[in-house]
Amino acid sequence: MVFLDPTTIIDILLIGLSGTLICLAVHFIPVGGAPAAMAQATGIGTGTVELAAGSGLVGLITSSYMYAYEPSASVALVMAAGAMGSAIMLASTMLAGGFIYAYGVAVPFASAQVKKDPITGERQDIYVSKGTQGQGIPTICFVSGVVGAALGGAGGGLIYFVLMGYYSPLITTHAAAVAGVFTMGVFYVNSVIPSYGVGGTIEGVHDPKFKRVVPKDVFTSAVVSMLCGIVAILIAGGMTA
């Protein structure tokens, strides 16, 4: 329980960093909430928390699998495994959602926040139908969502990696369960905070809202996650029987 030990401080900072990554991830994922579900706004038609947690926890599964089978895996590889799992989950969701928007609801994909898609350079505003804030998932939102999910998964993998380093020497076989549950707690806290910040809907990196809300949300998340990091390491102190 030595607080001033440099490794401990680095680990606390790492947990803080991973919480911040998760928080940042929420801002990248294009979520439109109920308006998007009615084809009134751009993005995926569900809640930010659900999507961030859903994709991030899939990343947690893949990164924990990686950790269990490759004990010598570097932290980068564990994070990459988490990022891949999350990004694939979100990409499949957006692809299947895109099919519905395209062939079920029948709307062209368009973003109302930018005039031209930064990636394809295609005009957006003329495809926004009357009385809506855009519809569907244009390429920029798709790419932004994939990047965001990857960040979230990497963050989840990082917390898991740090916590396993602490818990597995103390409670050998139970460490995965405890670290997993703790990671999930941190995940939920850090995906709800930015959801409040963005007010439920955001389109991705190109949304003007992105620049406005990211600093304060990231600051909040960093502070809260570091608090969680301190708590996590104190828990390890309590385990030494």
Binding site: A39, G45, T46, G47, E50, T93, A96, I100, V105
Partner: peptide
């Protein structure tokens, strides 16, 4: 744990994919 995570995922996917047509 695994079932919960897949449950959350399927909830997220269902509400963002299956719901959309329903709402729109």
């Amino acid at each position: 744990f695994l079932a919960l995570i897949w449950g959350i995922s399927v909830g997220a996917i269902g509400s963002s994919v299956g719901d959309v047509h329903y709402g729109g």
